[in-house]
């Protein structure tokens, strides 16, 4: 399932996939795969993405 909240949060910060990838230390394709729902990231990577975007885990990754 696509993670549109991540994409929206990244766009709101005016960050490209490459910039977010550089900020968290992964490849751009990994960020792309997470946004497309092709890859399920570890909690560690989720937390790093949340810190980079100033969001909480609930806001970006929790599907209630």
């Amino acid at each position: 399932m696509k993670n549109l909240r991540l994409k929206a949060a990244r766009a709101a910060k005016d960050m490209s996939q490459q910039q977010l990838a550089d900020a968290v230390g992964v490849s751009r394709q990994t960020i792309n795969a997470i946004e497309k729902g092709d890859y399920n990231p570890s909690i560690r990577l989720c937390a790093a993405i949340c810190r980079a975007l100033g969001k909480t885990l609930d806001e970006l990754f929790w599907e209630g």
């Binding site: 230390g25 992964v26 490849s27 560690r44 980079a52």
Partner: peptide, 15 residues
């Protein structure tokens, strides 16, 4: 705690 989770010279977790 650092934002960056990996060394850029390493493959990331998906890789």
């Amino acid at each position: 705690m650092k934002n960056n989770i990996g060394n850029q010279s390493d493959y990331d977790e998906r890789q």
